[in-house]
Amino acid sequence: MMTIPTPLRPIAHAESTPPPRRDGWWRTNRLALVALLVLVPLVGVGVWWNEWYSYYGYGARKVTAVQVPKDGTIELGGATWGPLKSGEAKDTSGLDMPAGTRLLIASVPVKPDGTAVTCDSPLLVQQSTGREWAPLRSEVGIPFSSDEPERCVNDLADPANPASVKPYSMVVGFVVPDDVDGPFWLDVDPTGDGRFVRFSLNP
């Protein structure tokens, strides 16, 4: 007698295995999205650093302040700087001072380690605003004096030996309006790298 043969395998119902789901947009693009997340900040940082370095990276500008302790000294760029002596000039009767200003005087001893150190004139910076003043001399009627250099000099004790630079003091005067209050910084930037010496000045 013929009977309906039993199926060899159970019939697979269409509903028992759900159809495979297609990947969503996020999943298919996950590699590109991760790449973006990493590369966009990297490019931003790279471009920023490149521009920053081309402007600040060659030591010609003041970048990093090295603070000098009060009445202390510091060694930087091949010389020992300090201690700073400063004050307001009390008697300016013989000078050509404009009305409403005062003359702040600072003296910075410099002791080069051996060979000459070059630097620009010190700058007086108002701490609260960042405004800067540079030394004035002939404009107020103070004559030039080789005993009072306004920038780094290199007088040799022994002309035959370039490593015998004598210690000296830079003496500078700043014309500052009366309404500009301290505290100030006195910045000296030796050439070399972007680090510069920062003294605190409170007249």
Binding site: T101, R131, L136, P177
Partner: peptide, 9 residues
């Protein structure tokens, strides 16, 4: 010629 000073004409 000559410096311009902040705050002083």
């Amino acid at each position: 010629t000559g410096a311009l000073v902040p705050g002083v004409m």
